[in-house]
Write a protein that binds this DNA or RNA. Structure first.
Length: 294
DNA sequence: CAGATATGACAAC
DNA sequence: TTGTCCTATCTGG
């Protein structure tokens, strides 16, 4: 699940269901005991996504702080109304009071709960994360400073990212995954955006023109915004969708329609050539030898 | 039911 | 480059 679109989606959702409310935090596995104690009684003031990093800003209570979560390869966050299921996650946040969520699911702002406001019950479980820790403001600044341009953030600086890419001899398939250059792009988006650009993942960054980078960046912004909306990665143009081509829709756990990601050995949706697979910088990569000439 | 694998990242060679 | 983290899911026997 977790490329940048997933994290941005979670940040917005968590603000909608827990924003402005006091929380009770527990550490069922005992790996976040001190952090949970500092969060309990604090109020979730804001949520933020930067690349694949999720930040919860807590104020008040016994100290508050910035909860930093990175899901890594297989971390998940689940949440829901009412009583939580059996405590198994690394961290659990339980809403104990706050303004009622708006009907359309938009962020519930306003002050914390006051007497007479019906308390919501909402739980959140974090399981299998690569990182779950409390940061200071300075540490959060340092985290943002070491991340590159996030196509889903308004403050992104694609020119700096493009400059670094176009001065590098490393292959584009690795450069797009370098979170200090571009933040939030993972294997699926990197693989697919290069297919859509008609550029092989082995191409050195310095062979990319400024115009090509501009188009790749714009495509990432477009694709990842769709990903946030739909909660899945779709990169296939209308004319190559299953309905348009009379083929069966993709039906694996990812769900999205893609051109080459994990389609090794299958025919390219554009030209029919066999999709190739390889390993680049310790990550799987896929491409069409015809549509993406090296 | 054991083993492989996964949209990730980092430390240690 | 390889190993490790650590969870869920899918595969083959």
């Amino acid at each position: 699940m977790p490329e940048g679109h997933t994290i941005h989606r979670l940040a917005a959702h968590h603000h909608a269901v827990l924003g402005g409310a006091q929380v009770v935090a527990t550490s069922p596995q005992g790996r976040f005991t001190a952090g949970a104690a500092r969060l309990t009684g604090a109020t979730l003031a804001a949520t933020e996504a930067y690349g694949k990093h999720l930040l919860h800003h807590y104020q008040g209570g016994p100290g508050g702080g910035i909860l930093h979560v990175h899901l890594g390869l297989y971390g998940t966050v689940a949440d829901g109304p009412g009583q939580p299921p059996a405590p198994v996650g690394q961290i659990r946040l339980r809403l104990v009071g706050g303004p009622a969520a708006t009907a359309d699911g938009s962020p519930a702002g306003g002050p914390p709960a006051t007497a007479g406001v019906a308390a919501r019950q909402h739980w959140l479980d974090l399981r299998g994360p690569a990182a779950c820790e409390l940061l200071t403001e300075a540490e959060a600044d340092a985290l943002r400073d070491r991340l590159g341009a996030d196509p889903l953030r308004d403050d992104a600086d694609p020119d700096t990212a493009g400059g670094r890419i176009r001065r590098s001899a490393r292959p584009l398939g690795a450069l797009l995954l370098d979170q200090t250059i571009v933040a939030g792009v993972g294997l699926v988006y990197a693989t697919e955006v290069l297919f859509r650009a008609g550029i092989a993942p082995t191409t050195p960054g310095r062979r990319l023109t400024a115009d090509q980078w501009q188009r790749i960046w714009a495509d990432l912004v477009t694709l990842m915004r769709i990903g946030v909306r739909r909660g899945r990665i779709d990169t296939v143009r209308d004319e190559h969708l299953p309905e348009a081509m009379g083929r069966a829709p993709r039906n694996d756990r990812h769900g999205g329609e893609v051109y080459v990601y994990r389609r090794a050995g299958q025919p390219c949706l554009c030209c029919g050539a066999t999709v190739a697979a390889g390993v680049l910088a310790a990550r799987n990569t896929y491409w069409c030898p015809t549509c993406q000439p090296g």
